[in-house]
Design a protein around this nucleic acid. Structure first.
Lengths: 114, 114
DNA sequence: GCATTATTCACCCTTATGGTTGAACGAATA
DNA sequence: TATTCGTTCAACCATAAGGGTGAATAATGC
């Protein structure tokens, strides 16, 4: 069986990022900094409740964090968390590169029987 | 409304990458190069059919491609497609960086009324 | 033609997901 | 205290998603 490590975190991260509305929220937060739920919701056609749910998803993936000031919930981006996605991507790329390297070595000695 | 460009492609890409089994398939392909559906399925506990479905998802996200030789379907990774995810991530990061830059400028002239 | 191999297709089931509406709650304010 | 504001909670609905089994298809080998 393939190494099914602790990738539940990465799964949550990618799942959260896979919804267009949620990505738009992340973009808004990146552009404007911390925003209230209501202000975020104003930018979308979906209901406030729907946006609230999306924020909860982003929150449990730790892509955003919430700072409750008085009755206002300030949502802000956790830019460092995005790097985790990048790490996965880079790991996969290096695995790929490594294989190509090995393959090349085999080619040079013309011993390439699979 | 936020710029909801043509991100259906990115959505498919991230959705495809958000499943652990599919990510494991991608890792296997990166490690071993092109593999048959059956050989891929051997690495997982889920049924062959389930793996076949996952491959179809990866295929429609263009993360893998299929080369049918005789009755065998060789699945291989499309490493360039992974770069799209990285592009999204980098874009978001630069938006973030840009905002911080602007913010810093504002701070220097102490004119920061939101 | 029949069996075998490799893979998909067609269903079915269960759970997750994204959306809605309406009630509830907590805090400020009149 | 009643009202308004900001937000979540609780149902509910429709659809998608992941998983399974069994039949179908396609190609090879006897």
């Amino acid at each position: 069986m393939v190494e099914r490590i602790d990738d539940t975190d990465l799964t949550a991260l990618l799942k959260a990022a896979s919804d267009p509305t949620r990505r738009a929220i992340l973009t808004l937060l990146a552009q404007q900094g911390a925003m209230r739920v209501t202000d975020l919701a104003r930018h979308f056609e979906v209901s406030l409740n729907s946006v609230s749910k999306h924020i909860k998803t982003l929150e449990s993936a730790k892509l955003v964090s919430r700072r409750t000031e008085w009755r206002e919930h300030l949502i802000e981006l956790n830019p460092d968390r995005l790097a985790h996605i990048d790490t996965w991507f880079k790991d996969l790329q290096s695995i790929w590169a490594l294989r190509l390297e090995k393959l090349e070595k085999l080619m040079t000695k013309d011993d390439a029987h699979d």
